[in-house]
Amino acid sequence: MAREASVSEVLLDARGIAKSFGGVQALRDVSLTIGRGEIYGLIGPNGAGKTTFFNVLTGLYSADSGEVQFDGARLDIGLPHLVTRQGIARTFQNIRLFANMSALENVMVGRHLRSHASVIGAVLRNRATRREEADIVDRAHRLLRYVGVDARANDLARHLSYGDQRRLEIARALATEPKLLALDEPAAGMNATETASLRQLVESIRADGVTVLLIEHDVKLVMGLCDRVAVLDYGEKIAEDVPDRVQRDPKVVEAYLGGALA
């Protein structure tokens, strides 16, 4: 495959990731590299292993084999909170907000791992804790403004509209100060207007220096937004290139439209 699209500096380097559930081989020796500052798309037909790969990368599943280098260090696969600490934050395909907390509190939870107050600090509420709390609230408000749901800061997350919930989840992920933001089908269920503004949001997140990994079904969105795209099919990477070339790749066309009958 042509390597003009190769990147200046590698942020994430996954090597030979394999994962099976019982007899089903969900991922087979998947390797890919994401460069710093890229918007990297991961597409594939239903059941191709996109979300599995995502869950391995963000620590929810442990891989059967393979390893991931992230920002110069080995990633602690299988320990989600450590993965987040190392700088990968994610959203979920089926939104997972803290439904009965306010929008603001949802984002404040995202600050958990970047704050330090212990039980004693919390009970005594000394100056350091007060300053930290003020900073958490302040940053949470700024992030809500950034994604455009600040008007609903004090509403319960469950009462937000679908599009706002998606944006709130992104704000919560950004609150952990990620180097890589992994979005699992962020445009699912969105109408054209919402998708367009999501696209703007993702672009501005990248412009602010966060690398983005995007799983998406909306091919138009992926092709328009991503710098590079990888295609998974039956747990294998069958293509990785700039969008134009991926679209014309015969293997990709076959995976999506079905091959000639044997």
Binding site: P80, T84, L97, F98, T176
Partner: peptide
């Protein structure tokens, strides 16, 4: 509220 999301929040 959601243990998995809590983990993902670090």
């Amino acid at each position: 509220e959601d243990e998995i999301a809590a983990k993902a929040c670090g």
